[in-house]
Amino acid sequence: MPNAMPNTTPAAADASALLRRVPIDYLPLLILPLLALLALPLVGSFPTWVTLTIAGLAMGMMIFIMASGLTLIFGLMDVLNFGHGAFVSIGAFTATLVLLPMKDWVQADSLLLNLLALGLAVLLAMTVTGLLGWAFERIIIRPVYGLHLKQILITMGGMIVAEQMIHVIWGVEQIPLPMPETFRGVLIVGDAAVEKYRLIAVGIGLAVFAIMFLVLNRTKIGLLIRAGVENGEMVEALGYRIRRLFVGVFIAGSALAGLGGVLWGLYKETLTAAIGSETTVLVFIVIIIGGLGSVGGCFIGALLVALVTNYAGFLAPKVALVSNILLMVAILLWRPQGLYSVAKR
């Protein structure tokens, strides 16, 4: 068939399109450095500013890891999952099953043993939350596809059940999640004190972002997910099952929430079952700021929220509580769909 090479005249009026090269929208990327620069004179002391900024970035990375799956879950199937925080809690608590018995490795002054223990804890937490995510999607989400009100109610119900299950298994008291020995302490950079663990959190966050970026841009599955967020019907018309993609995204998103829970729990060093529901508000603010369905927007949104929280906490502790809401309002006034809006249907 494709052997005939016809000499059809090319359509005219293509030239103007050459001039129209504005593929990447950089503006949201500029807000972060702008915010940091703006905060510098307000904070006054450079070392304090460095400490605050790195603390903000670390917190932002952890929130990003928790939120990244949720934004795709909404983007792909319009599913409002208020139970996402349950996977954060379960991930953190599951990690105690490894880190508490492996006290020797955790307390050893050996980076290798520490990493091994943490690696095992993360692996178990992500496996458990991934599997639970799969079950959650089948049992709780599937019957309410397309029904937003029911989704909100039933996923919130799932969240409550999960918290109670944690109480049943681990008791109602808060329990410790010990930080590996070599991750403790501070590095002195110039005059600024930077907690080592925060640098590790930044590193892990960047790695997760890089992996997601590669998957979403370089693999067929990733491209299908992005295409599905934009126009799920067309993805189906091209012959792919969007629900199968969605299940995969749901499992991965739940496992990432579990990872976020481990990192967050280590950071706080003590766990209560409410750790997930505490982060839920932040996570929702982040995905709304970022633009529902956009992983890049979620990343910038998470860093923004965390930086604003840290700067505001230092500059005006009274405002800190509402700073995120103010940030969200400001962003939505500028871009009502969030930083990066994904064109829908």
Partner: peptide, 24 residues
């Protein structure tokens, strides 16, 4: 074969499809 009758697609091969004109 497709580029033969839709040459614009070759020209904008690496561009986001959102930046194409309606005809493209």
């Amino acid at each position: 074969w497709i580029f033969g009758f839709f040459p614009a697609l070759r020209k904008f091969w690496g561009q986001p499809a959102g930046t194409l004109s309606g005809g493209q």
